[in-house]
Design a protein around this nucleic acid. Structure first.
Lengths: 150, 150
DNA sequence: TATAATTCTATAATATCCATAGAATTACTA
DNA sequence: TAGTAATTCTATGGATATTATAGAATTATA
């Protein structure tokens, strides 16, 4: 399952990206508006900052700002950072390869082969989707809803 | 991650399917040969039996036999039974749909949209792969290995 | 009737996830 | 320069899920 941590991270990045003026957004505002527990969000934004997604400013009128453009931030990096490898079995992971502890014959393992395919598909979708895509996708939906009611 | 439970279930079904004579296979044999903790395997085979994948025979010379042909058993059912829904977010699940507790606006949620696509791809692969496919895939590999060394 | 298997319930051990607490640090501003 | 409001950092509690284990009850065959 996609963890809450990852969902919170994605939501926070979208929220920050949508913020019109580029003044830093304090954790408290994001937490309140997105209904995310403040302390949890704090540690998530810290991780995102350390990974280079955000720039943070301390003190009064401090907060977080994107350090890349929304087009440059793809989901795959966020999900990897928050939830670890994309692959569902460790032997199918490119960056965190580890042979499965219960595996008897990895070369012949058909589970590995199936999950390599699955990983590939998921990777493709996650790398092709940026925060900017997510935002336009949201707006597309509200647009459709307005049209439906028109 | 794919749980050990699911891996054990797949391995056990492959093992039973590969067994030439159709006399029941006792848990102890499968556990020993596949290096699966016997008691864990016991509960897994029980679940598979209750779900209709296996027929069990009690008493001496008892054990488990497939109740369908390997061609008819697709991975998707096994994985669902062992690990729950295929979808990585509950709102993207067809059989176990539940709106995510932290969701503020599901209609506009772009996370849901991305993970609907991912679910679809994974579902496709898992439903198209049968236990019979897994077995021929294994044999294909050992064949390749032999050819490589020839 | 003894044996060897499944069936069932309970529980221990471990790991992961999520949320919270609180103190230290930083930087703006009045 | 003192006060304030924010980030930073470390530690921990609690819930849940996963995996493995234990042991007694049941069943069917030889």
């Amino acid at each position: 399952m996609l963890s809450k941590k990852a969902k919170y991270a994605i939501k926070a990045l979208i929220f920050i990206a949508k913020d019109a003026d580029k003044s830093p957004l304090p954790v408290s505002i994001i937490a309140e508006r997105e209904k995310i527990p403040k302390k949890s969000l704090e540690s998530i934004l810290l991780e995102l900052r350390n990974a280079g997604y955000l720039y943070s400013k301390k003190g009064i009128s401090g907060g977080y700002v994107l350090s890349k453009s929304p087009e440059e931030i793809s989901l795959v990096g966020i999900v990897r950072l928050m939830d670890g490898p994309i692959a569902r079995v460790s032997c199918a992971s490119a960056f965190h390869y580890r042979s499965c502890e219960e595996c008897l014959d990895e070369a012949a393992c058909s589970i590995k082969k199936v999950y390599l395919k699955i990983r590939e598909e998921e990777l493709k979708i996650l790398s092709e989707t940026s925060i900017a895509d997510m935002i336009s996708n949201e707006q597309l939906t509200s647009c459709n809803l307005i049209l439906e009611h028109a």
